[in-house]
Design a protein around this nucleic acid. Structure first.
Lengths: 116, 116
DNA sequence: TTGATATGTAGGAGAAAACCTACCTATACT
DNA sequence: AGTATAGGTAGGTTTTCTCCTACATATCAA
């Protein structure tokens, strides 16, 4: 029997969410956001992970389009890329109306509890 | 040698992002958003997956707090829960300023290209 | 050129994810 | 009671993820 085709997340958005599902990778994004573009070394110093493992985390972020790299001498500077996160927000926005309604309901219930 | 402790995503936010990294699960959320609470059967009819596999997808969503269930007779109705998605937006908001700046830069570059 | 530094690739181990089929449990219907 | 329906759990397979050590490549410095 031939192997089943992979059924795992493969779309662009899938990779973005999958990349965000790791505290290490989210921390990298935060570091780039707050500190601007940084070399691999600078970034890696924030983690206890072995260097090659950290390179792989960067690869995941790169393949999700969340960061880009620029070579400069023997260093590579990584930079936060805005588009995928903006896409996440676009994905999220139709849910916003929904949760405002739910939050409002909760508020009403709490008000009634206060009255009683 | 004792097995290493699991280093896989385990925080609440981790589970949310991991849950979102699947087109099936995102589609379930959309169905619940647009169609309101629905039974497992109703939801499952939208997918070709075997029923038990679909149950597991629901479990992932449930453990991420993205949906809740309510038993009614022999059916279980699933409902979209607002908090985790609101958390995602909260996580996202500090990046918003950042990508607005980058988008603005891009705009300037394009303007200069037009001038030339 | 020789050596040090910065970073990535290769290959492997172990855990986890995502499917499946078979089976179990609870509720409803007759 | 007996059968059908709704849904979950158990256990197995394949693929993917995440870490590691060892090694390769590119660049800078002496």
């Amino acid at each position: 029997m031939p192997p089943r085709p992979s059924l795992v997340a493969d779309g662009i958005e899938d990779r973005v969410f999958a990349a965000l599902a790791s505290p290490v990778r989210r921390e990298v994004l935060r570091l780039l956001r707050d500190g601007g573009p940084q070399s691999v070394r600078q970034l890696a110093d924030n983690f206890e992970m072995a260097r090659p493992s950290f390179s792989e985390q960067l690869r995941v972020l790169r393949e999700a389009g969340l960061v880009s790299e620029r070579k400069d001498g023997r260093q590579r500077f990584y930079r936060l890329e805005p588009v995928p996160l903006a896409d996440v927000q676009d994905w999220l926005s139709p849910y916003e109306r929904f949760w405002r309604e739910r939050m409002a309901e909760l508020g009403k219930v709490l008000d009634r509890m206060e009255d009683a």
